[in-house]
Amino acid sequence: MAKRLFSDAVAAGRAVVSSRGRGRGRPDRWRRGGVLAALAALTALLLVAPGVVPNTPGRLGSLLEAFLPWLGLAVVPLLTLALLRRSALALVAVALPVTAWAYAFGGLLLPAADPGPRDLVVVQHNVSDVNEDPAGTARALAAGGADLIALEELVPEALPAYAKGLADAYPFHEVRGTVGIWSRHPLTGTRAVDIRPESVPEPWSRGLRTVARTPHGEVAVYVAHLPSFRLGAGGLGTARRDESARLLGGALDAEATGPVIVLGDLNSTVDDRGIAPLTSRLNVPERGFAFSFPASFPLARIDQVMAREATVGRIRTLPATGSDHLPVTARVTLD
C-alpha cells in the first residue's frame, strides 16, 4: 500500500513537469499545487506506514502513532487550499490520504458481529487515585452487566467503596497493589505479575494474573497499568512504559492457560510501536475507536482490551465517572 501511494505521488509529480498550459499567460490547473499534492501524498504515506518515522530522537514515531487517526484531519486544510488554488492536481492528490485513512481505520467503523454463545463482556477502567466519588463509579460500572471488570489506580482509602458497590453483582474479586478485578465467575490462581521497570523504586505493584472459571472454560485474565509517559523538551518519554510492556509480554509467553484476556491502562494506543511486545502477541479490537483519555476531551484510547485465542469485537466507551479516564467495554469471543 505504501509503495503504491509513493508511486502515485511520483506520477503526480511527473504530471506537473510534463503538463502544458491551456490559456495564454495563465498557468494550467494541472501545473498548480505541486507542493499541496506532495503534502497529500506524504500524509497518505504516514497513515499507512507510520513506521517510516524513526523513534529517535524523542520518540517521534510513537508520538505520531499515539494520535494517528487524527492525521486524517489534514485532509480538510489540504482540500481547502486545493480549492483556493483551483488546482486539479492537488484535488486529485487529496484522494490519496482519504483512501489511506479508509484503508487503515475504515474497518473500525463497520458494524459489530452479532453476539455469540462463547462471548464474555468485559469492562476496563482507570478509576483515578483522586476520584471523589468511588461509590458512584462502582454503581455505574456494576450497572453495565459485564462479566469482568478490571480497575486501576485503586488506592487503599477508596477500595472499600469499590468492594461494597460491586459486591452484589460481582461476588469474586482480587486486588494486587493498585490493580484489581471483579468477576461474576470464580477466580483462582491469582498472583501479582512483576512489570516494574528497573528504574522504578519499590513498592510498585501494577500487574496481576488470575484465572476466571467461566461457563465456557478457564480463561487467564491479566490486569495491568503500564507507566505513564511524559512529553518534554527531549520528546516523548516512554522508556519505562516500553520496558514494562516487554515484561508483560514475557509473562504472556509463559502463560499456559488457553484463552487469555489482557485488560489495562497501557498508556499507549494499539498503533504505538512501544507496546509491540503486546500487540504482536495479542488480538486487538476489530471495531470502534473508543477514545478514553482525557475524559473531558478524549483524544486517544490508552485503556485497552486485548486477547489471545479469542477475538475482541467492538470496543466502546461508557459514560464518564469521577475519573479522568472513560471506562471502555468490549465483547470478547473465545475461539
Rank of each mutant, 00 (worst) to 15 (best):
T80F: 11
L318V: 06
L83S: 04
P57G: 10
T279N: 05
A239S: 14
T190W: 01
R4F: 09
L5N: 04
L78V: 08
L36Q: 03
L73N: 09
L63A: 15
L79W: 13
L266M: 13
A100W: 07
A320M: 02
E255N: 03
P115V: 05
A169F: 05
A74F: 06
A158C: 02
A104C: 06
L71R: 11
A320D: 00
L278M: 04
L83Q: 06
L39H: 03
F172R: 05
G250C: 03
A212M: 10
D28S: 14
R59M: 12
V332Y: 00
G144Y: 04
L78M: 09
R213L: 13
A158Q: 15
R118A: 11
A41E: 01
S7Q: 07
A330G: 02
P171D: 02
D272V: 11
W204P: 05
H173N: 12
G217V: 11
V262F: 01
T178N: 08
A2I: 07
R316D: 12
P69A: 11
A256E: 15
G23A: 12
R209A: 13
A93E: 03
G250Y: 02
S128D: 15
A102L: 15
T329N: 02
S268G: 13
P298Y: 08
P171I: 08
R273L: 09
G177D: 06
L334K: 00
V175Q: 13
N267E: 11
P160Q: 09
A104S: 14
T257W: 02
P215K: 12
L159M: 12
V121A: 12
Y103W: 15
L60T: 13
F297E: 12
V10T: 05
P115F: 03
A245K: 07
D271Y: 15
V122Y: 03
T333Q: 04
D168N: 09
L68F: 10
A169N: 11
P156N: 10
D114H: 06
D272P: 06
Y170A: 08
R206P: 01
E157T: 15
